[in-house]
């Protein structure tokens, strides 16, 4: 039963990753793409981490997974901000910096 819930959560998280990837490929400019990526991947990773945490045995491992989720989420938010700030900064000179 627990494994089934875990599998469901991981599958649901994967859907968010796929949605984020589709957003990255289909959205018109860098800000929309960042929006899709950071939101979808943040939630997707949280769901997958939750699913994996249900499957592992010990609290120590759950704690490590929580730490991984926390630092990936913080790093992802920070790099999203940095990319957006850089893109906005370099926009007047280069036009659309969405390479």
């Amino acid at each position: 039963m627990l494994d089934l819930i875990a599998a469901g959560l991981i599958g649901f998280g994967t859907v968010f990753f796929i949605a984020g990837t589709v957003g990255l490929l289909r959205f018109p400019d860098i800000f929309c793409r960042l929006h899709a990526l950071t939101k979808a991947d943040g939630l997707g990773l949280a769901l997958i981490a939750l699913g994996v945490a249900l499957m592992v045995g010990t609290w120590a491992e759950v704690f490590r997974i929580a730490l991984i989720w926390f630092f990936v989420a913080v790093a992802s938010a920070t790099s999203g901000h940095l990319i957006a700030a850089h893109a906005r900064q370099s926009m007047p000179q280069t036009g659309e910096a969405d390479d």
Partner: peptide, 16 residues
């Protein structure tokens, strides 16, 4: 220079 957000990120992650 990467700005204040990155400095906050640095303070949060460096100990870890």
């Amino acid at each position: 220079a990467l700005g204040e957000v990155f400095q906050g990120f640095a303070r949060l992650t460096l100990p870890a």
